[in-house]
Amino acid sequence: MNKRGGEGHPQKNGNVAQQCDTSANLSSPVIATFKVFQMELDTKHDKYERLVKLSRDVTIESKRTIFLLHRVTSVPDAEPLLNEADGKLCGVREKIGQIAEELRGEDIYQFHRAFTAGIQEYVEAASFQHYIRHRSLISLEEINASLVFKKGDEGSADTPSLEPRLTTFQVMPADYLLGVADLTGELMRLCISSVGNGDIDTPFQLSQFLRQIHDGFAYIGNTGPYEVSKKLHTLRQSLGKVEDACYALRVRGSEIPKHMLADVFSSRNTHMDSEEAVV
C-alpha cells in the first residue's frame, strides 16, 4: 500500500473524479446542511466561551472578597469591611446576572460545566460573609433569592405596560454543596488566624460549626456527586486542624498567660498556611 501512495501517477484517476465532485459539491445538499451545522456549532461554542469568561471573572472577584473577609479578624470593627465585601459581592452578582442572561431560553445543564467553578466560588464567598455576620450557614434559598435580576428598566420608562423582565439564577444543589465544602477551608484559616490574634471564643464556635457541616457531609455520603467525596477528605483535615487548635487552647490556655498564646500559634500558623496553599 505504501509503495503505491508514493507514486503520484496512479492517483490521477481518483483525483479527476474527486475534482469534478468538489465543484459540484459547493451547491450540493450535503454541503448546504453542513453549513447549517457549522453555524449552529459556532453559536454554541461562542456562548460557551462567553460563559467561561464570565465564570472566570466571578471566580476572581469572589476570591478577592474572601481575602478581604479574612482581614476581619485583625481589625477591631468588622462592619466597614463587611460592607465593603457587600459591595464586591454586588459586583459578582451583576456578573452572575449576565450569566443568567446568556442562559435565558437555554437548557442550563448544557452549559453547566462552563460556569460551575465560578458559581461554587461565589457560594463560598457569600456563605463566608454570611457566617461572619450571622454565625450561621446560608441556605440555598437565601442564595437563590439574592440572584434575582431585573432587566429592561429603561424600556419600561417609555412603555409602562412593559413589565421589567425578571431573570433568576438557580444555584444547583450540587454546586451549593461543593461551595460549602470550600467554605470549610476558609473557616479553618479564620480559626487559626483568630487564635493568632488572641481571640479565644471564635475557635470554639468555629469548631462547633465545622463539626455540624462535617456531620452533614457524612450524612450525604456518596449519594452526592463524585467531587463531594474528594472534598470530604479535605474537610476532615480542616476539621482536624481546628480541633487541634481548640485542644491546644484548652490545655495551654490554663497555664500560659494569654499574651503569649500568639507565640504558640504563630509557628503552627505558618506551617498550616503552606499546606493550605497546596490545596
Binding site: L137, L140, Y176, L177, Q212, I213, G216, F217, Y219
Partner: peptide, 8 residues
C-alpha cells in the same frame, strides 16, 4: 445546618 443538609 442539619436541616439544610437533609434538604440537599
Amino acid at each position: 445546618v442539619s436541616n439544610m443538609f437533609s434538604y440537599i
